[in-house]
Design a protein around this nucleic acid. Structure first.
Lengths: 210, 210
DNA sequence: GGGTACCTACCAAACGTTTGTTATGTATGT
DNA sequence: ACATACATAACAAACGTTTGGTAGGTACCC
């Protein structure tokens, strides 16, 4: 029982957050209790309150770390397209979102599960909105790049193309979580390519009056 | 305080469900308690237990009624396209999903909020999966119809087009809920039309290696 | 070097509240 | 009289949080 070397306060907080993720992935936000987290960690609830002032802070930190880690982790699809520009990078970014393996499924399950609380709690709403706004901004850059390269039609704002892409990605995540058998990884990839083909080909028709 | 005429047992259960919806829309599933529902109804928890054996049944019934009502209600966009076939009907079906007004926003907030519990609870998972499967099947019919009419390319299975459409719809709902200012009704409609333009134009390129 | 003081890191237990559920009582229509 | 339709009140369980205490490390003084 070596006490985890003095001074690694932040590391211990990450340990706690990982326990939170495990509980979250297994039982959802409705089943997230301090006792469950403590048990998952093999510790007491006193430990949790030692590192976090209250439950809200505990959850907020866990989500924050998960978000940051998801953004920073070596993403296979993105890595594969390293150095590339435009459309392939957009494709890679979307691929890295989808629940194509166990880890991706668990993460997405947590995020989808967080939406209930996030739509209720004002602070969480702001944090989530900011997260998706940031993601959309990044995709907007990629779309603009693809437009410059002539890979995407330039008759629509890049921001709209990004909103289309993120909508598609989020929605596919939800459907895949609920019906994994109908949305195996190959099909998710195929659907993504179908969607991108539409983006590429989709010239907007002129305005027509009913 | 006239007691609500004898014999309308089912009507009273719907009253209860409406109170559940109101609490759900305001406080989410995390804030759904029997006491909150009773207060919203101006009654006691005893009333709730008189009509429902337990909380699970209460929630399940509320979601069930909401689902059925959503499917049966006079949907403005669908009504407008009455008698039409193919693409316009698909467009109408998607329009009727989006949070374009207060009611649509409240309903969608409830559904999105239900996903946490639905991904945890086995029975709820099955019910939700079935709901989205049914919706996809309906959209598949519409896509097939549009294909026959030559409005959509026939080189992809209608089921895939339907999965694309539903993904886009669900994802746009989520984004609009979190950032209503960035996704006002006009933009949601515009994005939907952009998406549909892509579906129409998107011919699949031949398979390519490496 | 030994004593004292003080810190961090935790555990175990308890606190008061809120939860879903159950039991009991009461009015009312038939 | 009898079932229905509730209110009221109590229930045990579970919740987030607080408290009191211990073990061990560090720092300083003598």
């Amino acid at each position: 029982m070596t006490p985890p070397a003095r001074g690694d306060h932040e590391a211990r907080r990450r340990d706690v957050s990982e326990a939170v993720w495990r509980v979250l992935a297994a039982r959802g936000f409705g089943g997230l209790t301090l006792r469950a987290v403590a048990a998952e960690l093999g510790a007491s609830t006193g430990l949790l309150t030692h590192y976090f002032p209250n439950k809200r802070a505990l959850v907020a930190h866990a989500l924050d770390v998960l978000d940051r880690q998801t953004a920073d982790r070596p993403r296979p699809a993105t890595a594969e397209s390293a150095g590339a520009r435009g459309l392939p990078v957009l494709r890679a970014a979307l691929l890295d979102i989808l629940p194509l393996d166990g880890v991706g499924t668990a993460c997405n399950r947590i995020w989808v599960g967080s939406w209930d609380a996030a739509l209720t709690d004002t602070e969480l709403t702001a944090e989530h909105a900011e997260r998706y706004r940031r993601s959309r901004r990044r995709m907007t850059e990629l779309c603009a790049e693809a437009q410059e390269l002539g890979e995407l039609p330039a008759d629509r704002p890049a921001a709209d193309l990004a909103a289309l892409a993120q909508s598609f990605g989020l929605g596919l995540v939800v459907q895949a979580l609920f019906a994994p058998a109908e949305f195996p990884p190959e099909r998710q990839r195929a659907l993504l390519d179908d969607f991108l083909a539409g983006l590429v080909a989709g010239e907007r028709p002129g305005p027509d009056r009913g």
